[in-house]
Design a protein around this nucleic acid. Sequence first.
DNA 1: CGGCAAGGGGAAAGCGCTTTCCCGGAGGTT
DNA 2: AACCTCCGGGAAAGCGCTTTCCCCTTGCCG
Lengths: 361, 361
Amino acid sequence: MLRTSMQVVEESGERSMGVTLSEVARHAGVSLATASRALNGSARTVGGELAAKVRASADALGYLPNAPAQALARAATANVGVLLHDVADPYFAAIARGVSDAAGRAGLLPLVINTDGEPETQVRGIRMLHGQRVRAIVLAGSAHTDPAAVRAVDAALADYRADGGRIATITDHGPGYDAVLPDNRGGAADLTRALLGLGHREFAVITGPERLRVPMERLAGVREALAEAGVEPAEGAVQHVEFTRAGGREAVRRLLDRPQAEWPTAVLALSDVCAIGVLGELRARGVDVPGRMSVAGFDDIPFAADVAPALSTVRMPLERLGASAVTLALESDGGGRPVRQALPTEVVLRGSTGAAPARGR
Amino acid sequence: MLRTSMQVVEESGERSMGVTLSEVARHAGVSLATASRALNGSARTVGGELAAKVRASADALGYLPNAPAQALARAATANVGVLLHDVADPYFAAIARGVSDAAGRAGLLPLVINTDGEPETQVRGIRMLHGQRVRAIVLAGSAHTDPAAVRAVDAALADYRADGGRIATITDHGPGYDAVLPDNRGGAADLTRALLGLGHREFAVITGPERLRVPMERLAGVREALAEAGVEPAEGAVQHVEFTRAGGREAVRRLLDRPQAEWPTAVLALSDVCAIGVLGELRARGVDVPGRMSVAGFDDIPFAADVAPALSTVRMPLERLGASAVTLALESDGGGRPVRQALPTEVVLRGSTGAAPARGR
DNA sequence: CGGCAAGGGGAAAGCGCTTTCCCGGAGGTT
DNA sequence: AACCTCCGGGAAAGCGCTTTCCCCTTGCCG
C-alpha cells in the first residue's frame, strides 16, 4: 500500500515535464520521425493507417507538444509580442483584444508588456521579446518625440529584425515599419471643424505630453483646422498633461482658475480617458456641459457613449487596429517596402457638445 | 557591387536566429560551459576576470539568450499564463495589469488568453498554456456553475499540475487551488445593507448569467441581506444578463416595461460595467438617479467614479488581485494544502445612490 | 519483365542552451 | 613530503523536438 503510493509519487517526480513524443512513438510502434510527422504537420505525409494509430496513442497518453522544444527545432515560436503603455487603459485594452484575436486566428499566443510609455522600458521590452524569439512584435504605444528615445527604440527593433523578426506599429514610428496609421491629424482637424461649425470660437485643447508623438499629431490637426478658420487659441489654452483621468481634471482646474470671461466654450481633450476626467471635474465645479462648455474626446473607447453627457469624440476602430497590425506583421515578407495602411477616423457627435453659448458680454 | 549586396543578403539569411552562446564563448576564448555560467547565472561561480571577459564579448556581439533553448535545457520557461474572459473589459484589464506587474517583478512574461467565458475555450487555453510549459497559470475568470464545465476545466488543470505546473485562481474555483478570494458574497450583502439603510425596500437586482459562479455568489449575498431585513424582492425583479453594458440596458428595459407602481427604488447591478449600462438607459428614459431610483454597481472599476452620477459600488483591489494570484502561484510549493487568501471588499457610496423616495401612493 | 521513379518509414544529426562529470592545480594537514 | 580537499575550467551528454538523408517498397513504363 504504502509502496504503491510512493511509487506514484516517484513516477510523477521523475519525468515531471510531461509525455514526450518519443513515448508516443514507442506506444504506437513507430519511429520518432513518423510520430512527429503524423502529429505536428510536415511537408511529408504519413500513411493513413499509421497516422491514425499515432494520433490514437497521442491522446491515449495525453500528449501535448513541448512548445519550447518545437520552437528550438523549428527556429520559430508560436508567440507574438505586444508592447503597449498600459493594458488597464481602455484604449490599449481594446487594441490588445484585437491583437489577441488576430494572433489566435493565426495559431499564435500574445505576450504582452506594459511600458508605461517609458522609452527604456520599451527598449527592454523589445529585447525581452527578441530573446523570446517571438514571431512578430506589435508596437502599440505612441512613438516618442525625443530623437534619442526614437534612436534607442529603432536600434532595438533593428537588432530584432536582423534576426528575422517581423514588426508592425500602430501609429507612426517612422517610415521603415509596416504600420497601421489611424488618421490622428485628420480626425482632430475634423473634430475641430465640427465644433467650429457649432459656432465655437474660444477653444481650449488638452493634449498629451509633448514627449509623445500621437498627441502632438492630434494637436497639429486641431491647430490646422483652427488656422483655416482664422481662430487662434488663447494663450495658455493648450495644456499638456498625461492622458489619464487625473490629467484631464488637472487641466480643467488650471483652465477654470482664470477669470470666467476667459473660459473657453469648447474643450478638446485629445483622448477619451482624459476627456472623461474633464467631464468629471467640470461637473464637480458645476459647469454646465454642453450649455456653458462643450467637451469632446478622441478614440471612442467603449465607455465614451455611456458617460453623462455622452462624449463626442473621434471614432477609431481600436480592435481592428490591433488585429490589422498583427496581420500586417505576419504577412510582411521583409523584402519589399513597408506596408503603410491608413485607417480613416470619424467624428461622432454626442451630448457633450452643443452650440456655442451666446457671447458673454 | 552587386555581388557585395548579395553576400550581405546571404549572410543575414544564413544564421538568421541571432548570436549564439558558443559564438560568445569562442569570442571570449572560453568554453561554452564557462560562458553559460558567467552570463546566465548558475550554482557554480566563474573567476572574476574570465566572467568580465565573457560579459564583454556578450555585449560586443549583442548576445541575447535564446529563451526557448533555455526553457528546453532548464525544463522551465520564463512565462506565466493568464486566462480571462476579455482583456477589453476594465475589470479584467485591471487584473491583467496586476498580473503583468507581478510577473515582471519575478522576471516572467505574461501570456494572455481571452476565453469569453466559454468553458471549451478555457480548456483549450489551459492546454495551450500547458503546451507552452508556462511556469504558472492564473485563472482569472469566474468558475462555471455547470458541473460538466467545472469537471472539464479541473481535468485540464490537473494534467497541467501533474506536469509540475502551478495554478492560482482569482475567485473560487474549488478548494484544491491556491486562490485569491475577494468577498463577493459579503460585499454584496454589505452593499445591500447600505441601501436598506437608506430606506430602500423595493429592490431590483441585475446579475450575471446563471452559468457563472461569481454573479451567483454576489446574488446570494444580496438575498442574504434582504432576508435579514425581511425584504423580499418582487417577482421578476432578479434579472440575469451578460455582465456588459448592453446587458445592463436590456435589463432596465425589461424592468421599466412594468407598471410604474412596480418599479424598484433601488437597482443593484452586480458589475460596474453592467451598472454603467443601467445608468445610460435610465438617463435615456429620463428616470432620475438617484431621485427616483438608486443604482449601485460592483468592482469599482476605474471609471465608476467618473460617470454621472458617480457610481456607488463595492471596491475590490483589482490590480492586487492579479498580483497576489501570481505571487501565490509562484510560491506554492505544491506540497502543502492550498493557500486560500481572502480579500476584504468595501462599500463605496457615491452619487448614484440616495435615500429612497417617499412611497408612491 | 527489368528498370526507375515515387512514396513513405526510420536513423541520426542538429537547434542553443544547461549541467553533470572529470580533471588539474592551489592550498592546507599530519 | 605525501595526501586530501576545494575551486573552477572544459568536454560532453542531454532537453524534446524537426528534418535531412538513406533505404526499402510499390507501381508503372518501355
